[in-house]
Design a protein around this nucleic acid. Sequence first.
DNA 1: CTATATCTGTAGTCAAAATTAAAGAAATGT
DNA 2: ACATTTCTTTAATTTTGACTACAGATATAG
Lengths: 194, 194
Amino acid sequence: MSRGRPRSFDRDIALHAIMEVFWARGYEGAQLVDLTKAIGIAPPSFYAAFGSKEAAFIEVVKLYIETVGAVPMNALNNSTTLREGVQAMLLASIDVALSQTPGGCLLILGVVNCLPENEAARNCLKEARQVTRDLIVKRLRRANAENELPKKANISQIAAFIHGVMQMISFQARDGASRTEIEALINPVLKALD
Amino acid sequence: MSRGRPRSFDRDIALHAIMEVFWARGYEGAQLVDLTKAIGIAPPSFYAAFGSKEAAFIEVVKLYIETVGAVPMNALNNSTTLREGVQAMLLASIDVALSQTPGGCLLILGVVNCLPENEAARNCLKEARQVTRDLIVKRLRRANAENELPKKANISQIAAFIHGVMQMISFQARDGASRTEIEALINPVLKALD
DNA sequence: CTATATCTGTAGTCAAAATTAAAGAAATGT
DNA sequence: ACATTTCTTTAATTTTGACTACAGATATAG
């Protein structure tokens, strides 16, 4: 089948390893030496496997969305009532945010400020956030169809606010807030949904 | 009085100029060449006047708090009712967030991820955010004393949430949200205060 | 067993970014 | 005027970080 010397490491495991590094340090904060050390390889092996730091990041974001990020979004959808769904999503987001050191969501905090040459990484996350927002909108439309919301409810405003709560969770987790403090943040959303 | 060749630029004006740069690009995103270009000087003049990039940033943060950041905090305090104060503060925060390109507050977005050698800048902002939070707590205590809040109200939880709304304002402004979209974010807080 | 393909390891290259050395310029104080 | 002080200008220097050339290693195909 495949000729040549085989790779000395498992590419999937390596991708998970660098996901942790990008998650903890952000795109620019994660230096190549951190990535290669996390895998236990030398730079040429990294470039052979992933192409570039930027390409690796884009792949990591995809993996993050499919694994880490999927949990809250599934919790949102696999619920009968909107209120339960939003609550479950936000609680899962808190788990995600507190599962890393320092805390927070890669999609929200991974690239906030960046050098001009790293705009591609920032846009990659911006698009991912738009997908998150769209999923929330979709769930709200379903709730609307099921008469869980006033017909005149402004779906996109509510979605922006719910997404905003995920953002404050990430920021405060990054600043070192405790689980108790962060869990208290979600009450106003649930109250607003009643 | 002061001997020697006089400075060719006004230090205060220069500080304001680099405040804009740090605000727009963040600490690491603002390169020295951006700072010196904004002032119109060469690197040695910058170092003679400010010491280092880090020292300049710390000075900028102080200036930002005293000028830009003071507006929302004064709005919070110069109000008879808590509700009016919070609303005025958040509206002022929106003005601040939308007054820069890209949007957002320097204290919230200036350093999110950073290289290990820039932890000092991150801590500087973290402390500034703590001051913001403390001011909100103080205003809530006053409201509590004036019987505007239930005696059992959890002041620090409410403060964390209000601060969180400022974070979502900044973050969504940075992502390009419109004034209308951002203004809609503050309704749930006001509702929660009733 | 040989040729070929692909990986690894060492040791770089290259560019960018913060910082500074050194010489000349422009003010004050005597 | 002259000495002194402090700034400006130009051109490095130094460091760091992403990326790679090249030689040696290890697999498959025939």
